[in-house]
Design a protein around this nucleic acid. Structure first.
Lengths: 212, 212
DNA sequence: GTAAAAATGGATCAGCAACTCCAGAAAGGA
DNA sequence: TCCTTTCTGGAGTTGCTGATCCATTTTTAC
């Protein structure tokens, strides 16, 4: 349950739909033009609502930004949480890497990670925003961790491996790789980052094979 | 040699000092408040110059931003280029990791990487800015690569290792780790990211020991 | 020493974007 | 049905911020 749902106690179905349209429009625009580069006028036009609508559903721009963070957390992490849970083998990790790279290819390496971009832009400006993004990253790390734990349970990874650190390192590699991918307009650095990290997982898996 | 030096052909020593003061003030402010959150009025006051000074040395805000990118490239990468070149052992890598973490500790995990933050904020908004940041990252990657090549030459790493990819992966890990460090206000994720990557280098060094 | 070029100060402009207001339409609840 | 609440429309306002202008002082070059 998000914080914003508490702040708008009474919402008719129609109102909820309008609110969603505003958040989605804002999320799309902020992904392309950045938070500061996105005016509420843009959001208004893109969502097809009037000026007052935005302020009917959100106290100010900051409140809208926080709703966008919640939205992206669900869209990016939530939608892939079950996918991460099934990352229980090195082969599955490599398939996931291929999907991530293919997606960036389709995007022409533009935009990077929606959550990471929001965090980088708002980290020092908006306390709540920073917390929201951190929460999304924690959720993301937990999802990856779940996969690594599965690899321990099925004997792929030895129990001695620090899966917490490994999951954090994997997420960091992904984020850094996405940033380099965006700025170099090439998937090569993303591939290098993910491949190297997956190679390390494979090393951990091989170096201490299951003893059953 | 930076591009900006070509655009301001005649600069008195006094003028160059004033220009530098403006760029440094802008860099500091943009690191803390972000690019969009930094007004030229802030820069003017912080640098102790009048409004017209800024426009005397820079065509517009975008030009100042590009100068800030050049400045940060030199400050962050340039200043540590020789340090990177001496990273020719696993122990040296671990010492470097300690320094990075100690620095983030001193900063209270605020701000992240100055170059990464600029890239994330400007990546999709300013073509020249994106290219400038990418150039800085390339320089950074090359510096790390230099260290890995040294490790090959002194026999620490086998010649078969793809040092290009390894250097890129190390930089990505660092960037992602810094982002998580900033957003979580903790050096733990940064440590996890760097440790895991250095462990991998150590694995590559050990798995195929020098055959001399 | 003098003229040209560069540097400085500060007032001011103009546009934009966040935010407000109020009136009216639609929906919900009894 | 009728009354309350929610939703919508769009004009309007205010403050900020990037940018301009011109006069004045300082420095450089010969």
């Amino acid at each position: 349950m998000t914080l914003t749902s508490k702040l708008t106690p009474k919402l008719t179905p129609k109102g909820a739909a309008t609110r969603s349209r505003i958040v989605e429009a804002a999320a799309d625009l902020m992904f392309v033009r950045g938070v500061a580069g996105t005016t509420l006028e843009h959001v208004r036009d893109e969502a097809g609502v009037s000026s007052s609508q935005v302020y009917h559903y959100f106290a100010d721009k900051d409140a809208l930004v926080r709703a966008v963070i919640d939205y992206q957390n669900d869209a990016v992490v939530g939608a892939q949480e079950d996918v991460f849970a099934r990352l229980d083998s090195v082969a599955a990790l490599r398939a996931w890497r291929d999907e991530v790279i293919a997606h960036q290819d389709r995007m022409n390496c533009m935009g990077g990670c929606p959550i990471g971009a929001l965090g980088s832009q708002l980290g020092e400006l908006d306390y709540d925003a920073r917390r929201g993004v951190a929460q999304g990253f924690h959720r993301w790390q937990a999802a990856i961790l779940h996969g690594f734990r599965s690899m321990q349970e099925n004997g792929t990874l030895p129990a001695t491996v620090d899966t917490e650190s490994l999951a954090t390192a994997m997420l960091a590699s992904l984020q850094g790789g996405l940033l380099l991918c965006q700025l170099h307009r090439s998937t090569d650095p993303l591939r290098a980052a993910m491949d190297t990290m997956i190679d390390h997982v494979a090393y951990l898996a091989v170096s201490s094979p299951p003893t059953r």
